[in-house]
Design a protein around this nucleic acid. Structure first.
Lengths: 260, 260
DNA sequence: CGTGCCAGGTGCCAT
DNA sequence: ATGGCACTTGGCACG
C-alpha cells in the first residue's frame, strides 16, 4: 500500500489526487459527496457517502453502499481536474469521446488510499453462446440424432445463421443458438427460415437451441411451427474441463511493480 | 471508518470477515488471490492482486486494476463461508437463485477495511428513452410540423407502438423511439406499420426517432420505405431543467448510522 | 413472481 | 474508427 490517510483535509486531498490520479495507481476516496454527470445523458446525485475508485487504466467508479452497479462512472477518463476550495474538494473527470463529464464534490473526506494492484491473469470463462456453438459442432446429436452440420455462420440477407444443418431425412435445418432467448430470438429464427425456404423452395425446419426457455417464448415458437431443443449448460461447460486440463499450468505470477 | 488492518494474517481475516460480511457494512479486502466462479457459466481467474468489495446489501465485487467492470461478482449473496487455512483464506459467496458460487482464495492479504456508508439520495437521471417520448408528446413538431399525437403505447398484436400520430395530410404515422437504434429496431417498426396497414387498409408512415443513426440502419430503413428523424439529446435533457428547478430542494442528508 | 425491455449499458471482435 | 452483438448482462416496471 502506498498511502492511506484518514480524514484528510481538502488540501491533502488535492495534493494526493493531483499526484496519483493520472498515474498507474489505484486510488480510493471515500466521503460525503454529491455527483453530477453530463454527457450522453445527464444525472444528479445529492449528498451522500460514497466510495470513489480510480483504477489504473483511469476508469472511474462512484459506488454507493448498495448494488452491483456504480451510481456514476466513467469507463475511461482523459482529463482530470482537482481543486480544493474552501468548503469542498472538487474532482472533475472528463472523457473526450463521447464528450462526458463527471463532477464529484466532496464536502467531507473519510479516507484516501493509494495502492497498486498487479494482475496479469486473464479470466478464463466457459458458458458463452459461442461455447454452445462449439458443442453442437463437436457433437450434433445433442440437438438431434443423425443431424449433420453443413455450415456455421452461414450468411443470408437477413443475417448470419448460427448453424445450418440437415436432418436424417435430408431436410434443411436452421439452428439459432441463444443463451437467453426472448421474443426477438423467435423473429430472428423465423426470418432465417423464410430466407432459406425462399432460396431452396423447400420446407425448412427451424430449431432454437438454448439452455433455458420460458412458456411465452415457447408458445410463440410453436405458433410459428418452430422447434425448441434444450441444452444443458453443464454439458457445455464439462467439455471444457478436458480442454482446460490439457492446458493447465501454474500461474506465473511475479509482482513487478511499475511506477507510471 | 470502523476498522482498517494492514497486512492482516489469515486468522485476523477470518475473524473480521465472519463478523462483518453478513452485516450492514461495506467491507473491503485486498490482496493476492485466485477466483473461481460457477453458476450460469463457469470461470477461473488465476493469482493476481485484486480489490474485493462487499457492499451493504451483500453485493460482491472482485475488481482488478483495470476496467469499469469487476472480473467476478455476485449481485446478491445469500450464504457466506469464511475459513482461514494454513496457506490461504477462503471466502465463498453463494447465491441461491440462480444457484451460483464465487470462491476467492487469498494467498496474501494487503489490507482489510470495514466502513459504513450512509446514502439515502436517489440518482436523478434524464435522457432515457422515456424522456424522448415525453418530449415528443409535449412538442410533436420536433418530429414533424403539424404532427398530431393520437395515442401513446398503442397496443397491436405485434407489441406496443411508442407513439401513434397523424400527419398534416391525415396519414397515420407510427413512431418508434430508440436511444440506440439497431437492425432489430427497423424490423420492429416494420411490423407495427404492417399491423396498422392491415387494420386500416391504408398506407401508413413509419418513423424511427432517435438521437443517433448509423448508415447501415438508415439504408435498411429506407429500403423498406421507412423514415428517420433525428432528435437532439440536449433538447430532451434541457426540457428537464425547468422541471427539475421547480422541484429543487436541499438534500436532507442526515447520517443515521445503523448497525445491522 | 415471471416476463419484457431499457441502459450514460460495457466489452469484444469483425469489417 | 465503425458496426454488430453477446453479456454470469443488471435493473426496473408491469401484469
Amino acid at each position: 500500500m502506498e498511502k492511506i490517510i484518514k480524514n484528510p483535509d481538502f488540501s491533502d486531498g488535492e495534493e494526493i489526487l493531483s499526484e496519483y490520479l493520472r498515474r498507474n495507481f489505484t486510488v480510493q476516496v471515500s466521503g460525503l459527496c454529491s455527483v453530477n454527470y453530463q454527457g450522453r445523458a445527464k444525472s444528479k446525485l445529492d449528498r451522500g457517502e460514497r466510495l470513489v475508485i480510480k483504477k489504473q487504466d483511469s476508469a472511474l467508479l462512484v459506488h454507493g453502499p448498495e448494488n452491483y452497479q456504480p451510481k456514476n462512472w466513467q469507463p475511461e477518463v482523459d482529463e482530470w481536474e482537482v481543486k480544493a476550495q474552501e468548503d469542498e474538494l472538487l474532482l472533475k473527470a472528463r472523457r473526450k469521446d463521447p464528450d462526458e463529464i463527471v463532477e464529484i464534490r466532496f464536502e467531507d473526506l473519510e479516507f484516501l488510499m493509494v495502492t497498486q494492484l498487479v494482475d496479469s491473469s486473464d479470466l478464463k470463462i466457459r458458458g458463452h453462446e459461442i461455447d454452445i456453438h462449439e458443442s453442437i459442432e463437436e457433437d450434433p446429436k445433442i440437438v438431434e440424432e443423425e443431424l449433420k452440420v453443413v455450415e456455421r455462420e452461414r450468411e443470408t440477407p437477413a443475417g448470419f445463421i448460427d448453424v445450418f444443418a440437415r436432418d436424417s431425412e435430408g431436410n434443411y435445418v436452421v439452428i439459432e443458438v441463444k443463451r437467453n432467448p426472448d421474443y426477438n430470438t423467435v423473429l430472428q429464427l423465423q426470418r432465417y427460415v423464410d430466407e432459406i425456404e425462399d432460396e431452396f423452395s423447400l420446407n425448412v425446419r427451424g430449431i432454437l437451441v438454448a439452455p433455458k426457455m420460458t412458456d411465452k417464448v415457447l408458445d410463440y415458437l410453436e405458433e410459428r411451427g418452430l422447434e425448441f431443443v434444450g441444452v444443458e449448460m453443464e454439458d457445455v461447460i464439462a467439455s471444457y474441463e478436458t480442454i482446460d486440463n490439457s492446458q493447465k499450468g501454474l500461474s506465473d505470477f511475479n509482482p513487478d511493480y511499475e511506477v507510471d
